[in-house]
Design a protein around this nucleic acid. Sequence first.
DNA 1: TTCCTATTTCGCAAAATAACGAAATGATAA
DNA 2: TTATCATTTCGTTATTTTGCGAAATAGGAA
Lengths: 106, 106
Amino acid sequence: MEMDNKIELSEDIKEMARITKAMGHPVRLYILQKLSRMNACCYSGDLVDELPVGRSTLSQHLKELKYAGLIQGEIEPPYIKYCLNRENWKKAKEMFHQLFNADQEL
Amino acid sequence: MEMDNKIELSEDIKEMARITKAMGHPVRLYILQKLSRMNACCYSGDLVDELPVGRSTLSQHLKELKYAGLIQGEIEPPYIKYCLNRENWKKAKEMFHQLFNADQEL
DNA sequence: TTCCTATTTCGCAAAATAACGAAATGATAA
DNA sequence: TTATCATTTCGTTATTTTGCGAAATAGGAA
């Protein structure tokens, strides 16, 4: 016994897990939801006014979303304008679509 | 200054974050992916053979998915058969659909 | 230059997560 | 009863995450 059928988890699934993990926090989800509505963008200052976290905490969350590729920031002194990274957003959308519709594919 | 426009994050978004968080790990995503294909169910023993984690670790992951409502286990001595919780899976699917298609709604 | 203003980085503490092996559980088989 | 089998829970450790306030940064205005 103790056969080695162990697999290495694929890069695809690791990548999706990274993205999903980045989405798995109420504050970050709120930001993504807000940005995905229309082609809205927003400033850190707007978000810190409405969200129940401090500036530095919010900055961390934005950093994580940026690192995961879900958003991007354009410097627009003295602000930074954050928008969805539409390309990666579309990729994420497709990943989730595949996951949730796997039972309907032949 | 220092207006109190702070919102409380909605239960909806917190709930979605809980679910998303539960999905945000490669092992858990692998399990969900596997279960969502066809009406497949599986046993902890099958999974531990293929996944690069120990039995107790796998058990924890299954517990988390169960707690998040994404899977359910039926006792089938001496095994436990794990299947998707189709009802909640559908809810999750709709949540993600809304998030990713928010820009296309009127 | 010096002074704002928006935002990020740093340094820290508390809490949560991930992983393991050993021990416990619960059900069946001998 | 005792043994066996699949699985979970316990106890522990290492790491990551979340959050904050203070300090640093970078750009424009005075």
